[in-house]
Design a protein around this nucleic acid. Structure first.
Lengths: 329, 329
DNA sequence: CTGAAAGCGCTTACAG
DNA sequence: CTGAAAGCGCTTACAG
């Protein structure tokens, strides 16, 4: 590896001078500058960011903690982050907990040990030890998808979004509306969306039969199974179903089609997430677009503000969603 | 920031000793070890990886260069990489060229300046300056998706895969088979897949009408347009069409449905890539599964071997594909 | 305009 | 078993 020392020798100047031309700081004579630049060009020298950040305490790297890396949501999210960070010359160090909560604290420490300038975490469920560790870190931090008071958060309006969806269904004349959710430990997707469904039903004085509410996990098969459960065990058959993810909704659609019912005539189906799938499936799926890229961009901007010391208070941003009404309802 | 010095003082030992317990190397008395561990525990000290790698010349970070970050392919690929790298304690530094070739060299240098232990690049089209820079870098490197002689490559058998697909169509009785491709500058997807189509047709002595071959870009709309072109301008209407990506194929399906033809009765459609969409669309799309995760895993393993000095020769790995025959043909 | 020297936080021979 | 000291490749007051 070439070092600044060698460049200095070849250009017949001191390391200080080389450093100056590298960083465009301080006075350097045109003569010297030219010589240094020439040597750098010839040798293909690239300064060591490691050594640099050991001195400057800045790394121009920000850490991103993802609950799952191989999903459409994650890649959109990272894309949004990258869009604003790349412009400022920041790199992304990616970590993936694969839904294992114990990994979160591990990665937090790891990112700290690598002196990232800031951290963005997209979380599903959060626990106290994690929160404690975040505060302990004292590092610019933005939480996405869940809300922790005292931190800055970028959140989605999960509650209102599903209420809008249920209300739309009600407006269309549905009274028996079923719900496919996920574990409530996931506060946003599990708890809040279920709460929104229940609130909306209550506000319209509609009864909810217990068997209309089913809990699955994050895949299509699970949506299929839940739909079967709902239809098999309900006294009053629902005429509509809303699922907390598109994937679950699409699984439900598969079951409905399979038993020969039609969508939306016999049963209307709605999902959430605006996945690519939702556009392409037939009938096209009514869903909620949560603007994931936008969340990524917001999180990155917020983090940048913190890094640059423009604000250190708690700031919460709620990302706007859009209800996409399509053919499935 | 807490440093090793402070830990040493608090534990009443030298920095050397702290370093020893941190790395579990050399002799340390139980006494001392216990004291140090206690202080670390109490303070939440995390050693600086920067300082460490400045000395050791290892960063435990590997750089990944992606042509586009927000695609299903990319996230699957990164997932595969992460699967094997995470086990070995490596982190991923992600860069995204957004299909801008000039970014590639920039990122190569950047990754070098960050002293990554190795680089994995997923490329679409490659040019000589890029190749030169890679060789200049002298860093463990694995190229994925394209083949550069002298480097280690993980490639897909694009040519044979599409030949298999075309031959299957032929076996099913199709003689007029159209093709939707992309720019041939993309050697794998553009050039090789087109070559495979042409070869397969030739081997079966089937004529190819010029208008059967259309070129699009990587989205559905483009597939739709190409299909329209094919149907509008052909003397002999094709009874089947194969597209080089699922997205293009699905776009084509949309047009076919729109004009009231049915799939596969009137026109059979095949894609490539085994996207999630392909499963869900109806009729489900016949496609090729290139095992992207597997490519990620292979690339990571190969890179690890190089980093550990187990091999430094060129090694090429061809990832197996599977033809998924579904309802669209 | 230029350079010698200190220092960032670690590790690692070396000496004891 | 332990520690003083050198060194990794940079930057940055400071002195000239």
């Amino acid at each position: 590896m070439l070092t600044i020392k060698e460049i200095a020798e070849r250009a017949n100047v001191s390391r200080t001078t080389v450093s100056r031309v590298l960083n465009n700081s301080g006075y350097v004579s045109e003569e010297a500058k030219k010589r240094v630049l020439k040597v750098i060009e010839d040798t293909g020298y690239v300064p060591s960011e490691n050594a640099k950040s050991l001195r400057t305490k800045k790394t121009k790297v920000i850490g991103v903690i993802l609950p799952k890396i191989s999903t459409e949501t994650s890649s959109r999210f990272v894309n949004g982050i990258d869009e604003v960070l790349a412009k400022e010359g920041y790199q992304i160090l990616l970590t993936n907990t694969n839904l294992k909560p114990e990994k979160e604290i591990e990665f937090l420490r790891l990112l700290k040990s690598r002196h990232v300038d800031g951290i963005i975490q997209s979380a599903t469920n959060i626990n106290q030890p994690l929160v404690d560790e975040i505060f302990r870190l004292k590092i610019p931090f933005v939480m996405v998808g869940q809300c922790i008071s005292g931190l800055s958060n970028v959140v989605f309006d999960d509650l209102q979004a599903i209420k809008d969806m249920v209300n739309l269904l009600i407006k269309k004349g549905h009274q028996h509306i079923a719900f496919i959710g996920v574990d409530e430990k996931d506060r946003a997707v599990g708890y809040l969306r279920k709460a929104g469904y229940i609130e909306a039903m209550k506000e319209s004085n509609l009864d909810v039969e217990k068997s209309w509410i089913q809990k699955g996990i994050f895949d299509m098969k699970s949506g299929y199974d839940c739909m079967k459960m709902i239809l098999d065990s309900s006294q009053n058959k629902p005429t509509a179903v809303v699922a907390v993810t598109d994937r679950l909704a699409i699984g439900a659609m598969q079951y409905i089609k399979e038993i020969g019912l039609s969508i939306p005539e016999d049963i209307a189906v709605a999902g959430m997430g605006a996945s690519e799938l939702s556009k392409v499936i037939s009938p096209s799926l009514t869903t909620i677009d949560f603007s994931i890229e936008e969340a990524g961009r917001e999180a990155a901007s917020l983090l940048l503000e913190k890094i640059n010391g423009q604000n250190n208070r708690e700031i919460d941003r709620i990302i706007k969603y859009r209800l996409l009404e399509r053919d499935s309802i």
